[in-house]
Design a protein around this nucleic acid. Structure first.
Lengths: 215, 215
DNA sequence: CTAATATGAATGAATG
DNA sequence: CATTCATTCATATTAG
């Protein structure tokens, strides 16, 4: 990997900028935007999901269905970190500051309902003065605000009817079995050890194509 | 793009430094050292190898058995969950499996916009091998996929002009937990050591190309 | 610490 | 297509 020795470089590829520069002691660093990192993350998650599913499939086919509930299709259960006993990779989420919240609530109360895209931009840039925020954050906030006030209204209406009211919040998302990740990982691992590494590499491209792993 | 007024944060984790720069419009960049990039590469390599082998197994075994899930009226009994004896869930809405998603993405990437009705039939029937799905699901998926990809433009390239950005599309500021890189970097090491490095790098190159990780 | 809740975000489906 | 709604998921926060 050669990245030149300039303090900073621009790499234009597919319309994206990649920056590279010296960090500290001559260590060369590459800069990825959050979106790029996120894309990468998704890609890796896709791999892990596939590995997960197939490993499970393998196990069930091998008639060793011991243990644990499985959670399929959960793209956010990352066996990578769990396989070494670490926590599941987390994503960070925006948290409105008090001021931002205040402003948002004000705007919301003014009734105008769904802000247009244009309005969202305005709001976002105003709120940006009080902390980091994006238009998407604003958009989501209004979506959620509307949806939840509506739901609240409905559930209170329901409770007036006083029937089989298990309302408000009936079902709690069942927590993922802590051992799930570990088991999955072990499944992958054991299978992996079983597999002959040398076989079938040539078919990789076909496989990758089939699953769209290479984009 | 310039780096003049960057905010810098250090995240100390397991002795590694991750730098996060606030570029200009609140766009954040993550800095990875060559070493870290190398680590990432290794893990991707590992996953690609695992996925390949598992998928092969899946294919060969699928030739003999149908393990792709059972429709029970409105209920969908996940084959793997079923194998462990619980969790028959009622799904109010279709949820693509990881495999289905990958296939869909793959088709989507091949461009050609809205698939014809005929095409949708084909896609649906192919995806049906991996789980319950209807043509409507496929149709909706493409609709949504298109619509939402539009919202994801802009972002990382130009961050200088912020004033009258009526033209700019929404951008997600989805900061990624700095732990992400760390966790990824440490996770699959055990797998990696089993993987075939020489072959894996090829797949890495393919995978990483779209992220511009390589020079 | 564990459990419950609040809420930001993702996404299938519906509507115009 | 463009928007919007409804539901679900995951995380941050707080209560016990």
């Amino acid at each position: 990997m050669e990245w030149g020795n300039q303090e900073m470089q621009h790499h234009h590829q597919q319309g994206e900028d990649f920056l590279q520069y010296q960090i500290q002691n001559g260590v060369c660093g590459k800069v990825m935007t959050d979106e790029q990192v996120e894309e990468l993350r998704k890609q890796i998650v896709a791999y892990s999901a596939i590995s997960e599913q197939l490993a499970e499939l393998h196990k069930s086919m091998s008639a060793h269905h011991n243990f644990t509930g499985i959670r399929l299709g959960n793209l956010y259960c990352d066996p990578i970190s769990a396989s070494v006993g670490h926590k599941i990779t987390a994503r960070q989420r925006w948290t409105p500051t008090a001021l931002q919240l205040q402003i948002l609530e004000n705007i919301y109360e003014q009734g105008i309902g769904t802000p247009s895209k244009q309005k969202i931009k305005e709001i976002a840039s105003e709120l940006a003065q009080h902390g980091p925020i994006s238009e998407t954050n604003v958009y989501n906030w209004f979506q959620n605000r509307r949806a939840r006030s509506k739901r609240k209204l409905q559930s209170s209406t329901d409770s007036v009817n006083a029937e089989t009211d298990m309302s408000t919040k009936e079902k709690r998302t069942k927590p993922v079995d802590p051992d799930f990740i570990t088991n999955i990982s072990q499944g992958v691992e054991s299978f992996y050890f079983q597999a002959s590494i040398s076989r079938g590499y040539d078919s990789y491209n076909n496989l990758a194509e089939q699953f769209g792993l290479l984009g």
